[in-house]
Amino acid sequence: MLRSSAAASLVPYAELLDSLNGLTWPSQVRVRGGDPGSHRSNRLGRSPEFTEYRAYRPGDDLRRLDWKLLGRTDRLFLRIADDHAALRTSIVVDASASMRFPVEGYGKWEHACAIALGLTSVAISDGDAVGISVATAAGERAIPPRRRRDVLHDIAELFQSVKTGGEAALTGVVERLATSPRLVVITDFLGESERALGALRVAAAAGAEVFAVHVVAEAELDPPQRAFMASDPERPEFRRAMSEASRATYLEQFATWRERVAGELHAMNGNYRLTSTSEPVRDVVRRVVLGAAGAAA
């Protein structure tokens, strides 16, 4: 039985989780063998699910010969059956000061938390173990990979307890999880984008499925038309004036940077999804997992 506080922590996400029922998040490639799951394994096993016959080659395991076929045709064939395995999924959420934007109301942090919970829900439905790591200025706060569904409550409670602020050690967390088979990073890539991309590149090179969910606020994509002195929440002393004259340049430079981040992710064969805080979380999760399904197909 769930604790009442734990149950209450999921209430804001109830509608989202409902809307994601039946959604699957297949692996883009055959996963390495391990715990049984829903993803096709790179091992050819002995499951009852027949796939194909293959001619015997010296060295093959004789126990996998189809003796009946041998008796009928007097030829040596191996009966090939797919094995299925679970895919351990690690989700990293950035809790730096820049994620606390807009300061009031629904912001990037809330958006990132909802996306993380949605992806966790889908992955657990597939039988995958999901672990959450939150990169904060004070260090990493994590929940180890679990396959039980009640991990959703723990994650929701973790998100509630986390305070955003400062410069989060996102890169260090990504580097630590570089060996994870599936790595999802939900961040705004501000502050240390180059180092974070470098860590993701390492993870991709290690064979991980890399998903980068780039969260931007609507106010970042379309800043207020009035003139104001903008300051960086991670470095308050860094200030620049936004005016009519500088607005066009800002939009251009911001778009160019987003394209460059997307290009970097695509170059490392990763999955890049840009989402703004105005986009429904359900749609974001669908784009992430269905995009992966499309790639797998």
Binding site: V216, A219, D232, F238, R240, M242, T249, Q253
Partner: peptide
């Protein structure tokens, strides 16, 4: 004054 995380893109 206002907070804007993407302030570094402002010239």
């Amino acid at each position: 004054q206002d907070v804007l995380p993407t302030v570094s893109f402002i010239p």
